[in-house]
């Protein structure tokens, strides 16, 4: 009788433990997926990986233009995986003062014989500068569609936060064009877009 009780007790203890251990496994499986948003949040908060924190509004009255500093901003364009587009910045390089609102544009032309949709992915180096480059308008906020042989100038409106660390004098802003004509699933997380 006593043995039976003990047996029951042990069985119960076993079952409880196993349930707990399974729960750990399930939670960790969830955690694997949770790493995705955690990573994105961390990237934005800590400016890791040159990800840009999204569209900001420009309030002219609050921005002081720092005429004492001149920052070089370089523009770089890359086509991913044989994308048949012509894609390059209109100006390779500009010199601006922190706080100054600036408009630049990239030229894009679809050389294919059919309509194509692309997504531009921005990246900034040095990564530390990402936080200080504020974009009000950017062609990378949305997907861009061009008909065959159609071309356009795609604009960016941005300014540099005057708090930019003194050690940084050159910022490189890079865009890579990805073909998304075939992407059935609409992307939910576009860097540079506020969620």
């Amino acid at each position: 009788m006593q043995n039976g009780n003990q047996n029951n007790l042990k069985q119960k203890k076993n079952v409880r433990l196993i349930i707990k251990l399974f729960l750990i496994a399930v939670v960790m499986f969830g955690f694997g997926f949770a790493l995705v948003p955690i990573y994105n949040v961390m990237c934005k908060a800590l400016n890791i990986n040159g990800k840009i924190s999204g569209a900001t509004s420009y309030d002219a009255s609050h921005q002081s233009i720092d005429k004492t500093r001149e920052i070089t901003v370089e523009f770089v364009a890359t086509n991913n995986a044989n994308l048949p587009w012509t894609f390059h910045p209109l100006k390779n390089k500009i010199h601006i003062h922190p706080g100054e609102m600036t408009r630049v544009a990239f030229y894009a032309k679809n050389n294919a014989d059919q309509v194509m949709k692309v997504q531009a992915i921005p990246s900034i180096t040095p990564g530390l500068a990402a936080k200080y480059l504020k974009k009000t308008e950017c062609f990378c906020f949305t997907q861009q569609t061009l008909k065959p042989n159609e071309s356009m100038d795609m604009p960016i409106l941005f300014h540099i936060d005057p708090d930019l660390p003194k050690s940084i004098n050159t910022i490189t802003l890079s865009y890579t064009l990805f073909d998304v004509s075939n992407l059935h699933h609409l992307p939910e997380r576009i860097p540079g877009k506020i969620q």
């Binding site: 496994a25 399930v26 939670v27 960790m28 499986f29 969830g30 955690f31 694997g32 997926f33 790493l35 995705v36 991913n80 997504q119 992915i121 890579t176 990805f178 073909d179 998304v180 992407l183 059935h184 699933h185 992307p187 997380r189």
Partner: peptide, 25 residues
């Protein structure tokens, strides 16, 4: 379980149009 999650994300990226690891999406 984290590895299982990682390869599951790969699987959906490859076959179901998600973009966990694809900059395009």
């Amino acid at each position: 379980p984290v590895l299982a999650g990682t390869v599951t994300m790969m699987l959906t990226d490859r076959n179901f149009g998600t973009s966990f690891f694809d900059a395009a999406g």
